[in-house]
Amino acid sequence: MNARGLLVVLVSVATAISVPAAAISQGFAGLGSTAEGFAVPRPGIQLRFPADHGPHPEFRIEWWYITANLESEEGTQYGVQWTLFRAALAPKTEGGWSDPQVWMGHAAITAKDRHLLAEKLARGGVGQAGVVAVPFSAWIDDWEMKGLPKPGADQLDKVSLHATGKGFAYTLELSASGPLVLQGDQGYSVKSAERQASYYYSQPFYKVSGSLDIDGKTVRVSGKAWLDREWSSQPLAKDQTGWEWFSLHLDSGEKVMAFRLRDGRGGYMSANWISSDGKPTPLPPGSLQITPLRTARVGDRNVPVAWRVRIPERGFDVTTSPLNDHAWMATTTPYWEGPISFNGSAGGHGYLEMTGY
């Protein structure tokens, strides 16, 4: 939602570098632990571009997160994920091997009968991974998201995307047909009743073209993509146990961002209705209603893979269906992330992420 990725980063980092278990014992993936020494989001802060496309090392965690709904020339549906996470092990800035930043990348291709994924880990300070705001570049090893804007355009107006993994690779070009969208209150996105929050903005208007390589076969594809950018230091409450996050491209050209963070009180929900020309309308508390409709056995757990999503004040009432029930990210810390379609009061495609199952 993108509090998404939080689980993945902190637990994976802890595992990879042997952070004591106590450091990840509070809240979901330790994200309810205190942010002592780190900066925390405040309301009323104006986001600045292109600077905020780059890293914020004074905050504990952030990510650059792209999901794409794609179709081949023959009409076959695919989903693609590309994610770069940054986590700070300490609230300090040093260079070289003393740099406290840890980086992680996730990449995946999802088809109706396949889900291929890869994961990378890197330490900061040695050039193996990082992000530069201008000219924009985000990378980990040979995976890269690179800005290709026209002069005077936003650095993320046009980007190339590349990743490889066992049995797959992709090279895509993304061009924005609408503006950046600030989530929450002008980019200040509240995540709990205790007012934990993050800074959060999106680019949900990407048009995509490029190619996928699956088991040595090249497939030309086109479609739509959604970028989420988020950073924080203590974004969740101690009793929040996971989330469902939806990014929806409506056939009308409108977009919907919606999430539920599960807790012992029924969950904290948030939604943003985005017009076809990019105007966001954050919806008031209680606007979003989500209900699981079908559960699948995914590995050794039951996962709700089909949902009813309602926003009554907008007359929005849809049923979502996954392209592949088994879009399971079997990474250091596993989660479900995959392309979905939906129909009802509106039709379209999007992505769903679920953690804590």
Score class of each variant (00 low, 15 high):
279 K>H: 13
335 Y>C: 05
147 G>D: 10
164 T>K: 11
248 L>V: 10
178 G>V: 11
332 T>F: 05
214 I>G: 02
78 Y>F: 15
86 R>N: 11
121 L>D: 11
4 R>I: 12
220 R>E: 09
113 D>K: 11
95 G>A: 10
123 R>P: 04
342 F>Y: 05
228 D>K: 04
121 L>V: 12
2 N>R: 09
347 G>L: 07
318 V>H: 09
137 S>A: 14
212 L>Y: 01
26 Q>M: 10
282 P>H: 08
127 G>Y: 06
92 K>N: 12
309 V>K: 09
81 Q>G: 01
350 G>P: 03
291 T>Y: 15
140 I>G: 05
58 E>I: 01
285 P>H: 12
170 Y>C: 11
78 Y>N: 12
128 Q>T: 12
275 S>C: 09
17 I>V: 15
64 W>K: 15
257 M>G: 08
83 T>L: 14
294 R>H: 07
96 G>Y: 10
126 V>Y: 07
285 P>R: 15
88 A>E: 15
177 S>Y: 06
328 W>L: 09
53 H>A: 07
152 G>M: 03
7 L>C: 08
180 L>S: 01
304 P>Q: 10
258 A>D: 06
341 S>I: 06
32 G>I: 07
316 F>Y: 15
183 Q>P: 08
355 T>I: 08
312 P>D: 09
179 P>R: 02
199 Y>Q: 06
7 L>N: 10
179 P>W: 04
108 A>Y: 04
146 K>D: 14
151 P>C: 01
258 A>T: 07
70 L>W: 03
305 V>L: 06
295 T>S: 15
65 Y>I: 03
178 G>T: 11
245 W>H: 13
317 D>S: 13
11 V>L: 13
